[in-house]
Design a protein around this nucleic acid. Structure first.
Lengths: 138, 138
DNA sequence: GTATTTGCAAATACTTTGCAAAACC
DNA sequence: GGTTTTGCAAAGTATTTGCAAATAC
C-alpha cells in the first residue's frame, strides 16, 4: 500500500527535469506542483503540468526531494531530502523549514509504547508566520 | 485560507450523525471516510457517502473529532479530539494512536528559531506495525 | 536504434455541492 | 412551521495515465 518500488531507477537528464529541480531547490518555502509549474513555465513556457507531476514523483522516489502533506488538498514539495521539521502558517498557508535538531529520542518512546518498528518521525508545527502576525500588530 | 468559521454552529441530533460518531469513537485506529461509511452502512443501509463526509466535516469543525492526514490521497478521522501523536504502518497503511506524553518544549524551540507564533504541533511516526512485522518473523 | 520522456487530453480518485424531499425541534 | 439534514447525482479539484511524437544516451 505504501512503498513504491521505483527507487533507484536510472533517470535520464532532461531539460525539464533539470529545471524543475533547480527551481525547487532554490526556494526556501515549499510550493505545490501547480505553483512550481508556474515558476518553471517562466523558463520553459511549453512544459506541461503532467511533466511537473511526473518528475516530482520520480525525484521523490529517488530520494532527491521530499513530498510534504499539511492536510491541504494538494501536496507540497521540498528540495531538501534530509529529514527536518516544518511549520505551517494557519493564516496564509505557507510552509517553512524549522532548522532545529531532530529529537530521535521520540522514536524510542514511541516504539516502546506501540510495539511498532519505528523507522522515522516528522514534526509539523502550526502557528502564524512573522509576516502574518506582523500585519496585525502594526 | 485555513480557518473554517463554522465552529460552534448548533448541530441537530440526527440518527445518521449519532451513528457515524459512535462508530468512529469505538475504533482504536483511524478510518477513511469510505471505510467508516462501510461500517455505518451495516447499521443504516441507506446512508450516503456524502452524508458521512458532511458529518465528519461538521464534527471536526466543532472539535468533537479530528481530521488526520498521512500523505495518503484520502484523509483519516480520529474520534478523540485531544492532541496526541500517531504512527502509520508503511506496510499496511493503518494509523494508530501513540499514547505518550506530548513534548510542548518542541514548540518553544521552534518558536525561537522560526519567529512564528506557534500554537500547536503534531508528531507522526512511521514504521511497521506489530501485525506486519509479525508476519515476516514467523 | 532503442528506451525513456514529453505534451496533450482524457481518466481517475477523493471530496464537495445543488436540490427536492424528509427529519428535527 | 421554519430550518437543518438527508440521499442522490452531478460537479469540482488534485493527480495520474494512455498515446504518439520527441529526446536522451
Amino acid at each position: 500500500m505504501m512503498q513504491t518500488e521505483s527507487r533507484h531507477k536510472i533517470l535520464r537528464q532532461t531539460n525539464q527535469r533539470k529545471i524543475i529541480l533547480e527551481e525547487l531547490q532554490c526556494l526556501t518555502c515549499h510550493p505545490t506542483a501547480a505553483a512550481l509549474h508556474d515558476l518553471v513555465k517562466k523558463r520553459l513556457p511549453r512544459v506541461s503540468l503532467g511533466t511537473v507531476y511526473r518528475n516530482l514523483e520520480l525525484l521523490s522516489d529517488c530520494g532527491t526531494i521530499q513530498k510534504l502533506d499539511f492536510g491541504e488538498p494538494h501536496k507540497r514539495f521540498d528540495g531538501n531530502p534530509t529529514p527536518h521539521y516544518h511549520v505551517n502558517c494557519q493564516q496564509c498557508g505557507r510552509v517553512d523549514d524549522v532548522p532545529m535538531p531532530l529529537h530521535p529520542i521520540l522514536e524510542d518512546e514511541a516504539s516502546i509504547i506501540t510495539h511498532y518498528q519505528i523507522s522515522g518521525h516528522h514534526v509539523a508545527f502550526s502557528g502564524v508566520c512573522p509576516h502574518c502576525h506582523g500585519k496585525k500588530s502594526d
